[in-house]
């Protein structure tokens, strides 16, 4: 009698332990599930193709993003003279003091960082001038004007000859003089000075 009661109590203890453990495990799973983020929240809306096109103005070194067109050095010079010289000068020393600094120099030194001496990719000229210049009227230039200016700036920097054709195909192929000097960051922390 005594013995069987004892067994029964142990049995009940054991059962309670199992059920309790199972419950805890279940609740744990539920809580765990609460902590996990859904794969997606479903916030935001689908982007329309035309709004992507309107904002997607970047030009990559391989030419992705370049519109069709051809740059004319002579026209570029005229646009440069009317829209850029006031802040970037015309290759002389005085342009060092202007708000935009020189974009090309007749006599570049090792320290002057102009397109011809420091820029690794020609496509960057197109991308940057189209998005940000002229500083006082950003984004106001047509693709044709940007092509012309790009051709002129490459010529003024002695990167291309007078008869070079600058277009969607040729611009990405230009090898800039400074390209070979570019290296990717090699600092990694730790006890070394780089």
């Amino acid at each position: 009698m005594f013995k069987s009661v004892k067994i029964n109590i142990y049995f009940i203890y054991g059962l309670a332990f199992l059920i309790g453990g199972g419950l805890l495990y279940g609740v744990g799973l539920l809580l765990e599930k609460d902590k996990v983020q859904p794969a997606r929240f479903g916030f935001g809306r689908a982007a329309r193709p035309e709004e992507i096109t309107a904002w997607d103005i970047d030009v990559m070194p391989d030419g992705r993003g370049l519109p069709a067109g051809t740059g004319r050095i002579k026209t570029g010079l005229l646009i440069y003279q009317s829209k850029c010289t006031s802040c970037h000068g015309h290759g002389d020393k005085a342009s060092l003091e202007l708000p935009g600094g020189p974009l090309f120099l007749d006599h570049p030194t090792e320290k002057t960082k102009t397109i011809g001496t420091y820029w690794p990719y020609a496509t960057t000229i197109f991308d940057y001038v189209r998005r940000a210049m002229p500083y006082n009227a950003p984004g106001s230039l047509s693709n044709q004007e940007v092509y012309d200016l790009t051709a002129f700036l490459l010529f003024a920097n002695k990167v291309i000859p007078e008869n070079a054709v600058i277009n969607q195909q040729s611009l990405p192929k230009i090898v800039m003089p400074a390209k070979k000097r570019y290296v990717t960051d090699n600092r990694r922390g730790g006890n070394e000075i780089r």
Binding site: D58, M60, P61, K113, W119, P120, Y121, T124, D127, Y182
Partner: peptide, 16 residues
């Protein structure tokens, strides 16, 4: 805007 791609864009701010 964020444009996801397979190469760096070589913008003026990471070159010049």
């Amino acid at each position: 805007r964020i444009e996801v791609s397979d190469a760096p864009f070589m913008t003026r701010e990471e070159t010049s």
